[in-house]
């Protein structure tokens, strides 16, 4: 099976500010593969190194050692990002642009022909239910609406791989359902989804495989059903056990 995302012995170190230039190890020797057509859940508590790993995949941060590639291309090459869509945890878009302008801007970057761009903008705004607000500047949008614009921009190039960083955080139940439906639809179309989330019930529903990391280290990886059978527990219980919380302690 073709590996879409590949991490080989990835290590990321930071110089912690104000700590006498001490090094903080964000990711330790992380080796991971996400295959074509998979929905892969990347889990871990806050500060585990999930976002840092995504930052390396997206070229925001360089790895201290090890390799990271998308579609077999080193993530340092901008072309590695030609076939991906990325939805950040929070919305970060030019507030003076309208929804259709921001989508047109990103479509231009991907080199999508003008006629096709307009068609896709119509489809995507319909999908995220923002047709009525397409000509309004983003600064007038609610948080949920901005997140939906984020989802539309992540899909503008019809990506083969979608990287979602906690896609449902800050969304209302309806918005969450919409994101879940979109992930499911992409899965049915055979696309690959790599996403981090704290919503473990959601992960259990949509993911084929998951990886749990803690303090920068990969703790467990495998198909959701196999892990649940092995640990005889649901994903939330497995997660808590792996990151070191004892169920008795929680009960107490």
């Amino acid at each position: 099976m073709e590996a879409i995302v590949e991490l080989n012995h990835l290590r990321v170190e930071y110089r912690a500010p104000g700590a006498g230039q001490l090094k903080k190890i964000a990711v330790k020797d992380l080796t991971l593969k996400v295959n074509a057509g998979e929905v892969f859940g990347f889990l871990g508590p806050n500060g585990a190194g999930k976002t840092t790993t995504m930052n390396v995949l997206l070229g925001f941060v360089n790895a201290t050692s090890g390799d990271a590639s998308l579609f077999g291309v080193n993530v340092r090459e901008p072309i590695a990002r030609q076939r991906i869509g990325y939805l950040p945890e929070l919305t970060y878009y030019y507030k003076f642009l309208t929804a259709e302008e921001i989508l047109r801007f990103y479509a231009k970057i991907f080199g999508i022909p003008a006629a096709e761009t307009e068609q896709r903008i119509d489809q995507l705004l319909k999908l995220v239910e923002l047709e009525h607000a397409r000509k309004r500047p983003l600064k007038s949008y609610s948080k949920g609406m901005q997140q939906r614009v984020g989802l539309a921009q992540a899909l503008i190039n019809n990506p083969d791989l979608l990287i979602l960083d906690e896609p449902t955080s800050g969304l209302d139940p309806l918005g969450r359902m919409k994101v879940r439906q979109i992930i499911q639809r992409l899965k049915n179309e055979g696309r690959t989804v790599f996403f981090s989330s704290h919503e473990l019930g959601e992960v259990e529903t949509v993911c084929d495989r998951v990886a749990i990391i803690n303090q920068g280290e990969l703790k467990v990886e495998g198909p959701v059903s196999e892990l649940m059978a092995k640990y005889e527990a649901n994903l939330e219980q497995i997660f808590l056990r792996i990151i070191g919380y004892q169920e008795e302690a929680i009960a107490a």
């Binding site: 997206l58 901008p78 072309i79 990002r81 030609q82 950040p88 991907f110």
Partner: peptide, 16 residues
Amino acid sequence: NRTIFPLLAKPVSRAQ
């Protein structure tokens, strides 16, 4: 404003 992140997540180099 963090608008640099969705931008650099596209096939855009820093030189561009």
